[in-house]
Structures are given as C-alpha cells and as structure tokens.
C-alpha cells in the first residue's frame, strides 16, 4: 500500500530551513508533519496510508460525524499553529495527493500565484463577525417606534371583528418585514464602518438556529482581512457598538485571528 500526502497549507520558506512542525503528529495521529521546500515557498503536509485515506474509505468516513469533527478540528488546530508563526495559505479540509510527485506538480503549477498570495496575506489577520439579535425584542422595538405601525394599530382597533383579524395579520407581516429591514440595515452600517479598517471583506450566509444552537437569531455574518496595525481599532469599533446596542437586543461577536480561510484564493 502506498503513502498518500495530506496537504495542510503553503508557507514562505523559513529562513533557517528547519521544519518547525516536526513535533506535531499528522491527521492520522501517526505520521509526523513535514515541510517540503520549493524555493521561496514550502508545503506543510503529512503522509497518510492509502487504505485509510483513499477515495472510497474517505467517502465512508466523511459520513461519520465524530470522525469529521475530530479531523476538522485537527486540520484547524494545525493551521492555527502555523498561522501563529508565519503567513499561510490554508488548504481546504482533506486536500490529498496520491504521491509527493503529484504534490510537486501542483506546487510548481501554482508557484508564482502562491508566492504572490502569501505576500498579500502577510502582516494581516482574518477576523470574523457575527451579529445576533433577540427577534422578539426587536419586533417590539419596531412596533413601538414605527409611526406607520402605531397609526395602523389605532385604525384596526376601530374596525369590525372580521376585518380586525385580517388587518392584524397584514400588520404583523409588515412588522416582520420592517424587522428584517432593520436587521439588514444594522449589519450593513456596522459592516461599512469595519471595511474602513480592512483590506478585504466578505459577507456570508446567516445560519439559522438549528445550526448555531443559539436562542438569538443570526442576522449578519462576515469576514475581514485586517492589517495587523489596524486590528486594535477594528476590534474597538465592535466593542463600542456592542456596548451601545446591547440593551436593544443586539449581540456582536468577533472571533479571530483565523487562518485566512476566506481570503486565500487561487484560480
């Protein structure tokens, strides 16, 4: 059985040429992390057994949740570790080659691009922002402060029972629309402030409660690539805004620094 190659990421070649990661075990908990030098850039990888990481086996394993969880976290831990020392192009989970020769080919084909990407990522950190809100509280705030809604409520109170029912339903729908608009406006405004400090950004999908496991609703989800010298200011905005809007039911959550998962792109 042959040895496959599990690739974690690509880094600038360390000046002393030593492999700083040799003390780490790889994804199979057996083979050590290795570094292979390609001139200016180096690949960080580990060997894995074909019978454990071949296509068919992996197909099965990726359906086992505990396996995915353990290995995804391992992948992430290693990348976090590398990121602390050096600029890094993080690979997607389970990027595997059938031989070192195949890895060599891939790196050679992308060498210039990778070098340029590493230079672009160097000296910057990825930070993620998630905004949550207490939807009930926000609905109440909107209903209390929106003059259209207040007026409409008074109108409805004067109507016949049957019409009251229908009109109330319509009004409820309108309130929910306004709430969604408010959520979007809040996120966009915050996002605009933050992009002044970042060199790149991306707005992501909001996850529903089944995914987040939170009581509050996610209403903004974004990632930023922030130059090191601006990280403090960037985070200060989030802290301040969070303080300011906490009482109205908004929760701002910043996490980082991450490996530049969202901003490392090769074509």
């Amino acid at each position: 059985m042959s040895l496959y190659v599990y690739l974690y990421g690509v880094i600038p070649t360390p000046e002393d040429g030593d492999n700083p990661f040799s003390s780490h075990k790889g994804i199979d908990n057996e083979h050590e992390l290795q570094m292979k030098n390609y001139g200016d850039i180096s690949a960080v990888f580990c060997h894995v057994e074909e019978e454990e990481y071949g296509e068919e086996v992996l197909q099965e394993k990726t359906n086992q949740m505990d396996w995915v969880q353990e290995k995804a976290f391992h992948h992430h831990e290693i990348l976090m570790n590398i990121r602390e020392r050096t600029a890094l192009i993080p690979m997607k989970f389970c990027t595997i080659y059938q031989s070192e020769a195949n890895l060599d080919d891939m790196v050679h084909n992308h060498q210039d691009q990778m070098k340029a990407l590493i230079e672009r990522l160097d000296g910057k950190e990825e930070w993620n922002l998630k905004v949550y809100c207490d939807r009930d509280q926000l609905s109440k705030n909107v209903a209390d402060h929106n003059l259209n809604i207040k007026e409409k409520k008074d109108e409805i109170a004067q109507m016949s029972k049957g019409r009251q029912y229908l009109e109330s339903r319509k009004l409820d729908q309108y309130v929910q629309q306004e709430v969604e608009r408010e959520q979007d406006a809040f996120g966009s405004a915050l996002h605009e402030q933050l992009t002044a400090y970042s060199v790149e950004d991306t707005v992501k999908k909001n996850w529903n409660r089944d995914v987040t496991g939170k009581d509050e609703e996610m209403c903004w989800n974004s990632a930023y690539l922030v130059p090191l010298e601006r990280v403090e200011d960037f985070l200060e905005i989030i802290t301040n805004e969070n303080e300011k809007h906490k009482s109205s039911g908004w929760i701002l959550e910043a996490t980082g620094p991450w490996p530049a998962y969202h901003f490392a792109k090769l074509t």
Binding site: G9, E55, L58, Q59, M91, C94, P259, Y261
Partner: peptide, 12 residues
C-alpha cells in the same frame, strides 16, 4: 480554505 483539486475527491 484554498480549493486546489487534490487527487482524491472528497464529497463532504
């Protein structure tokens, strides 16, 4: 994370 096709296709 960077998607460069590896040799193994992983259907997550």
């Amino acid at each position: 994370g960077v998607v460069i096709a590896g040799d193994i296709r992983v259907g997550l």
